[in-house]
Design a protein around this nucleic acid. Structure first.
Lengths: 111, 111
DNA sequence: GTAGTTTATAGATAACCATCTATGAATAGG
DNA sequence: CCTATTCATAGATGGTTATCTATAAACTAC
């Protein structure tokens, strides 16, 4: 019997048949994680989650976060594009809510 | 009794006392998530997790991922810096293993 | 020591991104 | 229509990063 350790003493022979995760799937998941991997967006999501009704509008965030309105708007767009936030117009305001389903799906990636 | 809705008909008055997550903490978490929010590194972590012994060396990855050795080395360094991978030198090879504790802590962020 | 193998580092480049200012679009109330 | 408020978009800028080639460093075997 020949073990892998003996075979590989002086040459690297990766285990055959180990296929990497599909690149398209990896890119899709990375896109979702990139949306969350930003300090400002983490703060935004935390604020929305802890607020009453689990919703917030842009003007609720600029002050506490110390960022300009276009910057907040930019982050809201990023989070909406990946589906983590849902936007609903209520007159002048736009109320954003967190998509809890997608939020939980991120957790399942790391279990 | 005056409700918030009536007060805010023409002016945005964010709820007072809603403090954002501390910026330092947000930046720290974002740093960890940034390390994972990359398609190549997701593929690397998946390959290590599914391999025998839950470990792999750099030369196991270059072929299947179709990337140069310095590029893989760069990603291993990123993952090691945030503590997601542990490196152990075994002769010529360096064996990387996933830190399951930190892996699970990511899941807990989204529960 | 010499040769071969694996990993790390240095430097360059192109792409991406978070932020700002300036401005436009949408809505509400006279 | 005019004004005020909220949100979105455009353009600019400085910083980050994923990748490569070239080279060095660490280790093994002879």
């Amino acid at each position: 019997m020949v073990t892998r350790v003996q075979l590989d003493i002086s040459q690297c022979a990766p285990a055959p048949g180990v296929e990497p995760m599909a690149r398209t799937k990896a890119t899709e998941i990375a896109g979702l994680l990139k949306a969350v991997a930003d300090p400002t967006r983490l703060q935004i999501l935390a604020m929305i989650n802890q607020g009453e009704n689990s919703s917030a509008c842009t003007c609720d965030l600029t002050g506490p976060l110390g960022l300009s309105q276009p910057t907040i708007s930019h982050h809201m767009k990023k989070l909406t594009e990946v589906g983590l936030l849902s936007a609903e117009r209520k007159g002048t305001w736009v109320h954003y809510t967190v998509n809890k389903d997608l939020w939980s799906q991120i957790a399942e990636l790391f279990e």
